[in-house]
Design a protein around this nucleic acid. Structure first.
Lengths: 236, 236
DNA sequence: CGACACCTCACCATTTCTGGTGAAGGGGAA
DNA sequence: TTCCCCTTCACCAGAAATGGTGAGGTGTCG
């Protein structure tokens, strides 16, 4: 009996956001986990989540803007590798208060999260939460973390493909010169410096910046560079 | 005999970039793959690669700047999910020429790549290249892709931890107001708009932008926003 | 061949940004 | 309590970016 294969198949049949919610609930049961969370944010700020926490906790979390102090979110955004919640920094006072509140809301004491990054600035967090002692939790993570990493990535893949999910439309590709221009600007050059580096006149340079801006619907240079960056159109 | 577990152990013992090179060669032999490539680029443009291609091909590739036309690189930068090279766009003339050259250099006709993204704009590509017919290749990918996804992620993790590898030092954290300011700028607001949104004077806003610039060593606003973005200091 | 996208350059008035300096109250950490 | 960082505001001159329009050449795809 291979749980991983079953889960992958269940995922490949998911066709809607509701299916993903059903999937995380099924995953929770199959792996005997207390709570599971999949949460995705895209470059436009659009969010989508499928989770098994109580709606009271979710509402409170959103209401209070806890994502701003939650060490899981704050810590994972700067990482890319799965991390046990114990390894995060809980020293700040707001963090400890938050921890107490979470416990009151019925969350388990153990957890780990898998950060997932996609193109266009998409970022998702796949978290497992469990009420358990350290020994059993260590055993659980050792056994399950590989499966869950794969499931997290497959789930993110599905979520991005599903209509209305965290995905967002493509942006028109940039021409080589437009990429060059925006890349050099992102690196800190001003227009004069970029024009010199590219060996073109500043007037020509402006045409590239403006056409790139137009293509991406950006309102100014800062916006254009930021958009190109978050959409993976340029690499700095 | 579990190859995956062996490989994970071999990886956890890697302590240097040379060890990673040895690792990819070992991985190639254990999985009976023709060629393997791990290539990482960080936000500062620093690059590191461990691969099994001939040094002639690597030199030629770098010399000619083939990363600019290689559909594998171009295609993967916009994706986050493993992809078979057959599914990429090879229609452009430079792409087809490149394919011919690669074949002459002894590369196999089949391949897939696993894009991996880290924080601070780190991006790595883990590619498998094989000379094989479609049927056997399909069977190979079906059997091995899960293992290779995990290995790719573990390898990237190790590479980032190794001194001199693709990782780069942290940047001083931004204050909440500094984040607000840069975020709104990245979204396309000008200073007047940001000041209004934040309900502060434009003079105050400037202090934030300048102190953020100072912290990140950015030479202007575009650079500051780009840096904050690629280092995961702000989310747009 | 014609459409279309790309690359190159110019001009000009206006808006916006930058650099540098000074100052004051609030809060947390040592 | 003292020190440092955060937040808030002001002034000013000079540098840089912007918006809009026009126009020439090259290459590719159908």
């Amino acid at each position: 009996m291979n749980k991983l294969v079953d889960m992958q198949e269940a995922l490949s049949n998911a066709r809607s956001l509701e299916d993903l919610q059903t999937f995380v609930e099924g995953l929770r049961d199959v792996y005997a986990i207390d709570n599971l969370v999949y949460h995705s944010v895209n470059a436009s700020g659009g969010q989508y989540a499928a989770l098994t926490y109580s709606s009271e906790w979710v509402e409170r979390y959103i209401d209070k803007g806890y994502e701003r102090i939650d060490p899981v979110v704050q810590g994972c955004y700067k990482r890319f590798t799965p991390i046990d919640w114990k390894a995060l920094d809980w020293s700040a006072k707001p963090s400890r208060d938050f921890l107490g509140e979470a416990a009151s809301a019925g969350l388990g004491n153990q957890g780990f999260s898998i950060p997932i990054r996609g193109p266009s600035g998409q970022f998702a967090l796949f978290s497992v939460n469990q009420k358990d002692n350290d020994d059993r939790w260590a055993k659980f993570t050792e056994e399950r973390v590989s499966d869950l990493i794969l499931i997290a990535h497959y789930m993110n893949e599905r979520a991005l493909e599903i209509e209305g999910g965290p995905n967002q439309g493509p942006v028109r590709a940039l021409s080589p010169r437009e990429k060059d221009a925006l890349t050099l600007l992102a690196l800190g050059n001003n227009r004069a410096g970029v024009a010199e580096a590219l060996n073109i006149s500043e007037n020509t340079l402006r045409v590239y910046i403006e056409s790139a801006r137009f293509k991406m619907g950006a309102s100014n240079t800062v916006h254009a560079v930021a958009t190109a960056l978050t959409h993976g159109l340029i690499v700095v």
